[in-house]
């Protein structure tokens, strides 16, 4: 496809954008074509491993993408696989099928293993013992919940455009997420925080990675008003981790 775009007179950059292939790939394909014609262009099916999300139809996948950009029904802070599965019309899908589809789309985020950090002598270990453990102990004592989460950019994959993913790991590491077309703003975060408080009806400790809340007056103000919400920023990765 990239080569055809180039034959149509598109630039590398344009062909790359339209085909969703990287510029070097387009360039290589074009070069191969000029030197050896179509046979020289290796046409391999991209990405998508066997069985990944095949259980879902195209319309269902489109619907899922749309859902992920929206707010889940209250008080859910973000979509989990069960809630998503329930929204699907037509052929019923299992939460497991949703998780497969997530994995295929590159949307699965592993949960940070806190037990492992307890005994680490690295700066991350120190951070955990000094910043996380005391807060967690306080929250647990008050019958609250400990969550982890973050925000990140997920590059485009297949027919899914690039997106900004808000993710949370709840009890037993259950993954919750929202996928937005633009970077989340203070409101998005605050909605998420508020729903966490509402669904728990107890204090919350949230270890969050990937947002620079220090620069957001809205978030700082909200945190000052909600002392039962303990936000702990995960520091940037350091080499001795």
């Amino acid at each position: 496809m990239a080569v055809r775009l180039r034959l149509d007179g598109h630039t590398v950059a344009e062909a790359s954008r339209r085909s969703g292939l990287s510029a070097p790939t387009v360039s290589a394909a074009w070069k191969a074509f000029r030197e050896g014609g179509w046979e020289a262009v290796s046409v391999k099916p991209r990405g998508r491993r066997k069985g990944s999300g095949d259980a879902l139809g195209a319309a269902q996948r489109r619907a899922l993408r749309e859902r992920l950009a929206e707010l889940p029904p209250a008080p859910l802070p973000a979509w989990n696989s069960r809630a998503l599965a329930e929204t699907l019309k037509g052929k019923p899908a299992s939460p497991r099928a949703i998780e497969h589809w997530w994995a295929a789309q590159g949307l699965t985020v592993p949960c940070r293993d806190l037990h492992d950090l307890e005994k680490r002598r690295s700066s991350a270990g120190r951070w955990f013992r000094q910043r996380v453990r005391p807060v967690r102990d306080v929250v647990n004592k008050a019958g609250g919940e400990c969550w982890q989460g973050g925000v990140r950019v997920v590059p485009a994959a297949g027919d899914r455009p690039r997106c900004y993913q808000l993710y949370l790991h709840g009890k037993r590491g259950a993954l919750h997420m929202r996928c937005l077309p633009v970077a989340p703003v203070a409101d998005d975060y605050l909605t998420l925080f508020e729903r966490l408080l509402v669904q728990a009806e107890a204090p919350i400790a949230l270890l969050f990675h990937g947002a620079w809340f220090q620069a957001s007056p809205e978030v700082q103000e909200w945190l000052a008003e909600h002392l039962e919400f303990h936000l702990i920023n995960v520091p940037p990765a350091t080499p001795d981790d």
Partner: peptide, 18 residues
């Protein structure tokens, strides 16, 4: 990069750590 607080942010904007 939001290197200091002189960088004007849009209302509600939260810089991301990337």
């Amino acid at each position: 990069m939001v290197d200091d607080d002189r960088m004007p942010l849009e209302p509600g904007e939260v810089p991301m750590m990337r």
